[in-house]
């Protein structure tokens, strides 16, 4: 089935990139304009009839969200994964609700956790895991869990930890070098 997929990919999109490939497992990255076409064709032509997962990775350093759709075939249980990059700002991704009803829930979660919009998903604005969440979506890389926790729950009871490295440095006076060190380490 995977070979069939490769033929399909060659015919459908020119510039795809294989991320991982082994028997019964193919992961490719395609341009976002063509990703829906690839998914539709994979379902209709290559028997990838089950939607297993929709996931997102926040590639903040490149200012993109990498969306990944994982499809499976009930025929031979092979996996087909398609990835595409979307700009982080005002990220809008087509919904798959008409092909797979379960997509509604995956998309709701991504909407809530990453702030990715799926226009056309009727339930996308319903709260899923977080009720009444305000502020930046928590799965984004720029959301600081520690800072949130301190703000919401207060600081934890003071720790008594003494760092062995720091204690030894103080005790041996190793940073009290004859010529002041360029670098002071904690």
């Amino acid at each position: 089935m995977a070979d069939d997929l490769m033929t399909m990919l060659r015919e459908t999109v020119e510039d795809y990139r294989v991320i991982r490939k082994r028997h019964g497992y193919l992961h490719v990255s395609v341009p976002r304009e063509r990703v829906m076409e690839v998914i539709v064709t994979a379902k209709s032509r290559c028997g990838k009839n089950v939607l297993q997962l929709i996931s997102a990775v926040d590639r903040i350093e490149r200012d993109i969200f990498q969306l990944t759709w994982i499809l499976e075939s009930t025929e031979d249980a092979s996996i087909f994964m398609v990835s595409a990059d979307y700009p982080r700002e005002g990220c809008k991704v087509p919904t798959l609700k008409d092909m797979w009803p379960s997509a509604v829930f995956f998309e709701r979660e991504l909407r809530e956790m990453f702030g990715i919009e799926f226009p056309g998903n009727p339930r996308q604005d319903e709260d899923f895991l977080l009720e009444g969440w305000e502020g930046i979506p928590p799965m984004r890389r720029d959301f600081d869990t520690l800072e949130y926790s301190m703000k919401t729950y207060g600081e934890r009871r003071k720790r008594e930890h003494v760092d062995p490295r720091r204690l030894i440095a103080e005790h041996t006076g190793e940073w009290d070098t004859p010529v002041p060190s360029r670098k002071e380490k904690s």
Partner: peptide, 10 residues
Amino acid sequence: VGYLHRGFEK
């Protein structure tokens, strides 16, 4: 759902 959300993935 959401009563058991503990943010494992994060």
